[in-house]
């Protein structure tokens, strides 16, 4: 390195200020920026995000199905192992899954559904993973997943088949509602950015590529099959 990194920083920031004809300690500018960051105001939200709950769930489901995912609905969490087993059977897949340590999976009867479940990140040798989404956004059929022991990020990308469960009550209209929830859960108000999870993944279908003559092919690097299970309120 020819330059000391610090000097490159000062030079770039100096050039930016010169280009903008701004000075370094301009209180009005600083105030403007601080305010915008603190308020993080919402911009325009498409009207399709503002629907009654029932229509939201329907839009979420149909949009996802249009993005090469399959969707199932169950009444309550205790039906989850059965729903997973049913899906795996329909795909001729072995009943072995990898999950994070989300407490919602703990009390469930996996044995009863003949499912072998292991917990943790994956090194690429798990054909099927099951994750729990923080939110489902109906606007574009998008699932929000945050990284952590409950949701190892590798589970969303390495297995060929990814099943994502989401609570019906967590299906919201817009991305903005999901962001508010994530900010709240990570106590961003008090802890700042350090409280945020390392990764927030927005997943809106199965992995795909259009790189060969613009033909859409699924399963490029990530999962070829995405199955979403909506858990009802009961």
């Amino acid at each position: 390195m020819t330059d000391h990194p610090l000097s490159a920083r000062d030079r770039i920031l100096g050039n930016v200020r010169a280009a903008l004809k701004a000075t370094e300690n301009d209180n009005a500018r600083t105030f403007m920026v601080q305010k915008r960051l603190k308020l993080h105001k919402r911009n325009l939200i498409p009207s399709r995000a503002e629907l009654p709950m029932e229509s939201k769930v329907r839009l979420f489901q149909t949009t996802l199905e249009g993005q090469s995912a399959s969707v199932a609905k169950i009444a309550a969490a205790d039906a989850l192992p059965g729903a997973v087993a049913q899906y795996l059977a329909s795909q001729n897949l072995e009943k072995t899954i990898r999950t994070g340590d989300d407490p919602i999976f703990e009390g469930l009867d996996w044995d009863g559904a003949m499912i072998t479940r292991s917990i943790g990140a994956t090194a690429g040798d798990d054909p099927v993973a099951l994750s729990m989404a923080n939110y489902g956004v109906c606007e574009t059929g998008t699932l929000f997943l945050t990284s952590g022991p409950r949701n190892p990020t590798s589970l969303s990308f390495l297995p060929m088949t990814h099943i994502i469960a989401v609570n019906e009550r967590d299906i919201v209209g817009s991305y903005e509602e999901a962001w508010d929830g994530i900010r709240l859960a990570s106590d961003m108000e008090r802890r700042g950015a350090s409280g945020l999870p390392r990764t927030v993944n927005l997943i809106s279908g199965a992995s795909r590529t259009g790189d060969i003559e613009q033909t859409i092919i699924l399963g490029a690097h990530g999962p070829k099959n995405l199955h979403v299970i909506i858990i009802g309120k009961a």
Binding site: T63, Q67, G100, G120, A121, T140, T142, S147, G148, P149, P152, T153, S154, A193, L196, P197, R198, T199, V200, N201, L202, I203, S204, G205, A206, S207, R208, G210, G222
Partner: peptide, 24 residues
């Protein structure tokens, strides 16, 4: 870009794996 409503994967990420993270 592609005419999709949203790309399949959009990822917001900051910093290295947190203390309790199993991967990253």
């Amino acid at each position: 870009a592609t005419g999709q409503e949203i790309s399949t994967y959009t990822t917001f990420t900051s910093g290295p794996r947190r203390e309790s993270d199993p991967d990253g």
